[in-house]
């Protein structure tokens, strides 16, 4: 069994992925390309933020903090989310492709956690995987629709794929924090099979050689995270003792 600090880092990585990506998605609220897609994206955002809360509450129990203290009073260097999760939304195609790449990974992670020996992680994974199964269904359908859509939608999502792909290597760069709980190689293999299937249905192809972008899991972020945190944390930091908004 790993020590507590490493366990907390593990939980923080999972939670930060969900919080930051959930926050990114929430930026679509009121701006979705169609009313129905607006609601769909926000449903996913709420699922992810709900999942992050579940984890922050656990971390809070271990560290004697509240979930708000953990979410709102850490700076960029203390966030351990994947870089992919903090990338800007750009257009709907980029957002939904970013979502698909993450959802597919997220699902495989939860699938492994369900059979882990840690009781808390098992309950977390069981609760979350049903939500994530739907996320995959939703984002995958859109990637295929846009990739195999019009010439313009194809070109746009192809450009998004070239841009996002280098950020997917970080998914599988697991260290001593994750090794006791996840099998990186297995996840990577399954992820590549699933994603390549979807891409081929979408008449797209993953770029061959790319320069992996990494750092988020170890607290080294793109410049985008600072802006997200400024937006997300402002109110709590300006009025730290406020009880109601």
């Amino acid at each position: 069994m790993q020590n507590q600090a490493s366990y907390i880092t593990f939980l923080t990585r999972l939670a930060d992925n969900n919080l930051i990506l959930g926050h990114r998605l929430s930026e679509w609220c009121g701006h979705g390309p169609e009313l129905e897609q607006d609601i769909a994206l926000i449903n996913v955002a709420l699922d992810l933020i709900g999942q992050s809360r579940f984890l922050y509450q656990k971390i809070g129990d271990l560290e004697q903090k509240t979930e708000d203290q953990i979410a709102y009073f850490r700076d960029a260097g203390q966030f351990y989310n994947l870089l992919l999760c903090e990338l800007p939304n750009e257009h709907f195609g980029t957002t939904i492709l970013r979502q698909y790449l993450y959802d597919q990974f997220h699902y495989l992670v939860l699938e492994q956690l369900i059979s882990s020996s840690d009781e808390f992680l098992v309950s977390y994974a069981k609760k979350s995987i049903k939500e994530v199964e739907y996320h995959v269904m939703q984002s995958k359908a859109w990637v295929i629709r846009l990739g195999d859509g019009t010439e313009k939608s194809h070109q746009k999502i192809k450009a998004s794929l070239d841009k996002l792909w280098p950020y997917t290597d970080e998914f599988f760069m697991m260290d001593s924090v994750e090794d006791p709980l996840l099998e990186a190689e297995k996840i990577k293999k399954q992820w590549l099979v699933k994603v390549n299937q979807t891409l081929s249905e979408a008449t797209l192809e993953a770029p061959e050689q790319t320069w992996p972008q990494k750092g988020g899991k170890w607290g080294k972020h793109t410049e985008h995270l600072g802006f997200i945190l400024a937006d997300m944390q402002f109110l709590q930091r300006a009025y730290p003792d406020a009880k109601a908004w």
Binding site: E34, L35, E36, I39, A40, N43, Y134, R145
Partner: peptide, 20 residues
């Protein structure tokens, strides 16, 4: 009611708009 391009999307949209 809702808008969607085809039946698959209509069912997903219905799930998100009316059954959440």
């Amino acid at each position: 009611s809702l808008h969607a391009t085809d039946q698959q999307m209509a069912i997903k949209n219905a799930r998100d708009v009316y059954a959440r």
